[in-house]
């Protein structure tokens, strides 16, 4: 199937009557996923959004339930958002990140209804990356600029139009309902060419990384590797696969809400015990946890690396702590960064 770029706004407008539609919109110098009221608000050529798509499913701040408590009992209301959604213009790395987060919010024992209900009610329409940025390394972590994992539909930008490739049944249905024209052989060939030419030039060699991390928890390398890190939350909040959160009460007396907020393993209070003891008392332990979590613990638990190579942490770290360099340092050789 194929849809011309000119038709996208009206296609989105039609979707808006049936779904909550989210798409990247311009906010100053960057784009963010926002619910749109008009198809023309979507900015589809702005590269990856500043904040990852996770914020739609796992918002930075979310009310878990409200309560009204008296001595007779407690009235709890937990509004689980089950509105039908379409997220339009997701990049493949972000879509893949959701499949990783699914492991966490749907683990061997518990299900998170807030996240999972949104996931189940959302159709993800992706746009492949014709010109991956120099900070992208998706192909080094099992992804790719046209990877379809997690997506329902994939759009391939062929210049004036998008070639539409259904991935799931949900996506196929959406595309059929939209009545997109059939793609000609020439269109398909154009899409294939685009895919072929989209080269992720940056490779991060992860061979042997896991084996190193399996044994190097006490290695002196950790004494130095974190040294410039400021211990802020920028990399974790911007990371599509980071999922840590805090739960707080926002209340006046006994009427209020329980809220969850993004939290970060970079913060000292994250792990401070009630007794005052802190198992990760310095930035060294905290930075090590960030790396270990993504490249060892997550692999041990779910057989996947918890990094999709989106490059957000690289571009946004205030001190240029580059995860590619850190990983190379850990592997014990020089980084190979093509730029």
């Amino acid at each position: 199937m194929i849809v011309s770029k000119k038709e996208i706004p009206s296609f989105l407008d039609k979707l808006i009557s049936d779904y909550q539609v989210f798409a990247p919109v311009q906010k100053g110098s960057y784009t963010l996923f926002k619910q749109i009221c008009s198809g023309t608000d979507a900015v589809l050529d702005g590269g990856i959004t500043k904040l990852p798509v996770k914020e739609i499913f796992f918002p930075q701040s979310e009310k878990l339930f409200s309560y009204n408590v008296t001595n007779e009992g407690a009235k709890l209301e937990a509004p689980v958002d089950d509105r039908k959604k379409v997220v339009f213009g997701v990049r493949p790395c972000d879509a893949r990140s959701l499949t990783l987060l699914d492991n966490v919010f749907n683990n061997d024992k518990y299900q998170d209804p807030y996240y999972l209900t949104r996931r189940n009610n959302t159709i993800l329409v992706g746009i492949g990356c014709n010109s991956p940025a120099s900070t992208c390394f998706c192909t080094s972590v099992n992804g790719g600029p046209f990877d379809t994992k997690g997506l329902d539909l994939l759009l391939v930008d062929t210049g004036d139009a998008y070639v539409v490739e259904p991935v799931s049944d949900k996506g196929k249905e959406l595309a059929e309902k939209a009545g997109f024209a059939a793609a000609s052989d020439a269109d398909k060939a154009a899409a294939a060419k685009v895919k072929e030419e989209a080269v992720v030039s940056c490779r991060v060699n992860t061979d042997g990384l896991k084996a190193k991390l399996d044994v190097n928890f006490y290695d002196p390398i950790w004494d130095r590797i974190h040294e410039k890190c400021l211990g802020c939350g920028a990399c974790t909040y911007l990371c599509p696969t980071c999922h840590c959160f805090d739960i707080v009460d926002d209340a006046v007396d006994c009427n209020g809400c329980r809220v969850r907020n993004w939290d970060s393993c970079a913060f000292p209070l994250f792990t401070l015990h009630g007794s005052g003891h802190n198992p990760r008392s310095t930035n060294k332990e905290r930075y090590r946890n960030r790396i270990m979590h993504k490249f060892k613990y997550f692999v041990d638990n779910f057989n996947e690396i918890a990094c999709v190579g989106c490059g957000r942490c690289i571009k946004n770290c205030p001190v240029n702590m580059d995860i590619r360099v850190v990983l190379e340092d850990i592997r014990g050789s020089e980084a190979r960064l093509d730029s």
């Binding site: 400021l230 802020c232 920028a234 907020n261 970060s264």
Partner: peptide, 12 residues
């Protein structure tokens, strides 16, 4: 409205 409370400002 853009602030994500990452405290990078404070830590830097």
């Amino acid at each position: 409205s853009k602030c994500i409370r990452c405290y990078a400002c404070r830590n830097a």
